[in-house]
């Protein structure tokens, strides 16, 4: 039974977090770590099905909860990876945990990227800063089913080289010819051998087939408009450009009201929307 059915058919308390053990912690940057979690209950662990893009509520009793997008691919069974910036009470408490400690998760919640629909097409992924966290799930999922996709391009920008996340993986992929990966930073240092400038400037470096390309965007709120402009200049369809929104998803299940964006809730109607939907969503971009 999938977790969604446990909630929706069995009536499991959707506010009750499942204990999960921290099985690995990797320092990605000074402020960001990648936590690998293993849900302790076997049936929940096996039922934890999702498409790339959803999030969990990370629950640390005594502190609170925070929505964190899932960075690992659905094809990675048995473990969940969360890329977490130390930015608040809950994420701060998580950063204080060590391997073997137990935290809680609720989820997976929300609508992800349309992976099945994207199959057979080219994909252009654009990430800014921590926005790579949910896109990493999609990138890894595409990677695992690479033969089902056409050209895959990844444009990823960060403020400076020290803030590039998953650098070890990208360094590995840069040498592969089945991913077009371009990294850029606003401010380079002497170690940097990639591009310098905004992620939007990278669009001049890529060729895309607009009728056959899906877009996937995630980054800081200010970034969306500019990236969409570039995609539209390349004549990509409005309903093939997908983006993930960060809002204050507190309950994750469409009740608490905090993640309202226009007439929708990011937690259940999103967090992934296509541009046509976003255009029809007040406060979205």
């Amino acid at each position: 039974m999938t977790v969604a059915n446990m909630y929706k058919e069995k009536g499991s308390n959707p506010y009750r977090p499942w204990p999960a053990r921290i099985t690995s912690i990797i320092d990605l940057t000074e402020n960001e770590r990648l936590f690998e979690l293993r849900i302790i209950d076997e049936s929940v662990r096996e039922g934890f099905q999702f498409e790339s893009g959803p999030f969990v509520e990370l629950s640390i009793f005594g502190v609170g909860e925070a929505p964190i997008s899932i960075s690992s691919a659905p094809s990675k069974q048995g473990f969940i990876e969360l890329c977490v910036r130390n930015a608040g009470d809950v994420t701060g408490a998580l950063h204080g945990k060590k391997c073997g400690d137990i935290v809680g998760v609720r989820g997976p919640f929300g609508r992800g990227f349309p992976f099945q629909e994207m199959k057979g097409h080219d994909v252009l992924l654009v990430a800014g800063g921590l926005g790579i966290a949910p896109l990493k799930s999609l990138i890894n999922h595409i990677h695992d089913d690479r033969h089902d996709f056409g050209n895959v391009s990844i444009l990823y920008g960060a403020r400076d080289p020290s803030e590039i996340l998953f650098r070890y993986q990208f360094d590995m992929w840069k040498h592969r010819d089945d991913f077009d990966l371009i990294l850029t930073v606003d401010e380079a240092d002497e170690t940097w051998g990639d591009e310098v400038g905004r992620v939007t400037a990278l669009f001049d470096m890529i060729d895309i087939d607009p009728d056959n390309t899906y877009g996937a965007i995630c980054g800081p709120p200010v970034m969306y408009r500019f990236v969409i402009d570039e995609m539209r200049k390349k004549e990509m369809d409005v309903d093939k450009i997908y983006m993930s929104f960060e809002r204050r998803m507190k309950c994750g299940i469409g009740k608490c009201g905090h993640c309202g964006v226009g007439h929708q809730y990011a937690c259940i109607d999103g967090p992934v929307f296509n541009y046509w939907e976003a255009m029809n969503l007040q406060e979205a971009i």
Partner: peptide
């Protein structure tokens, strides 16, 4: 709309999670 608050018992070992009415009119809501 609601908010959620955790309260620890004096011994810090157990506690309660409570929800409280909230309002979209409060400055920190979103």
């Amino acid at each position: 709309c609601f908010n959620v608050r955790d309260d620890l018992a004096p011994d810090q070992k157990t506690g309660t999670r409570t929800r409280l009415w909230d309002s979209c009119q409060f400055s920190e809501f979103a």
